[in-house]
Computed example of a mutant assay.
Amino acid sequence: MAIKERKEREKQEMRNLIIESATQLFLKQGYDKTSIRSVADDIEYSPATIYLYFKDKDEIFYVIHENAFDILNRLLRQHEVIADPFERLAALGRTYIEFGLKNPDYYDLMFIMRAPMSQIKNEEKWKAGECAFGYLLTTLAACLEQKKIRQADLHVTGIQVWSYVHGLVSLYVRERMCILMQPDDVTREMLYKSFELFLANLKT
């Protein structure tokens, strides 16, 4: 392996190490209590090393955030092959729920944990989040055009759908579904069935 290629690989490995450490620290002790020094201590390097790769804590959070949204986007886009927009909408909702159930840590960082959005909002950088919501709106627009769902404002309906699946996943991720006193597989199935009933109420 050429020296340049080896250095690039080592640089990427260090970035990944920092990101993995920061992710766990953000989840364990919160964004505000996590510092560059705490990340450096966790990976046993100096804070100066961290600054060679990221300018500040916000930038680390941004990278983690975008990586998570990239995963979600790819999962959602796999349903582009579904011709019927209502069936596609149903698939998007199920995939969103499944993503949250399988990736509770990522979901917490993306949608629940309180953290500054300044880095994400700067220079229109939140393309990943806009892409995911935009795809939902595109699917809903097709549903409205083909009269698959009741006529309503597109963006209001988009927020309505997103809020519903987010609520289901958030209750599960934060372990509030324990109130049902059901086995985990039964609880998960209830989430999907609840979404199906929600969709049925949107139909014309």
Rank of each mutant, 00 (worst) to 15 (best):
I19V: 14
T23Y: 05
Y31K: 05
E66L: 07
K33T: 04
R88E: 05
M14A: 11
L27D: 00
G100F: 00
Q12Y: 06
F111D: 01
Q12L: 14
F69I: 03
P104G: 09
H65D: 11
Y106N: 07
K33N: 14
L17W: 00
D42C: 07
L27W: 07
F99M: 05
L52D: 06
A90Y: 05
D84T: 05
F54I: 12
D58N: 14
K33E: 12
K11D: 08
L17M: 11
Q24N: 14
V39P: 00
D41M: 04
Y96G: 06
I36E: 00
D56W: 09
F54H: 07
N103I: 05
F86W: 07
I82F: 06
I19G: 00
E20S: 13
G30T: 08
A40L: 04
K33Q: 12
I64D: 03
D41N: 12
V63E: 10
V39F: 00
Y106T: 04
L75T: 08
Y51P: 02
P47F: 07
I50L: 13
Y53C: 07
F61P: 01
D84S: 11
R37D: 05
V81K: 14
I18P: 03
A90K: 15
Q29M: 11
Q12M: 13
A40I: 07
Y107F: 15
L52S: 11
E13R: 15
P85T: 11
M14K: 15
F54Q: 07
E66N: 13
K102D: 12
Q29Y: 06
N67M: 12
M14G: 04
L75Q: 15
H79P: 04
D56M: 11
E87W: 03
D41H: 03
R77V: 03
G93L: 02
H79V: 08
N16F: 01
G30Q: 08
M14C: 08
D32L: 11
E44F: 03
I60V: 13
Q78V: 13
D108Y: 14
F26N: 00
I18W: 00
R37A: 11
L101S: 10
Q78H: 09
L17Q: 12
D105T: 13
Y106R: 12
N16H: 09
H79Y: 10
F54K: 09
S46K: 15
F26M: 03
E98Q: 15
L92I: 14
I112D: 01
I64H: 02
K55N: 14
R37T: 15
R77M: 12
F86N: 05
V39M: 00
Y31M: 03
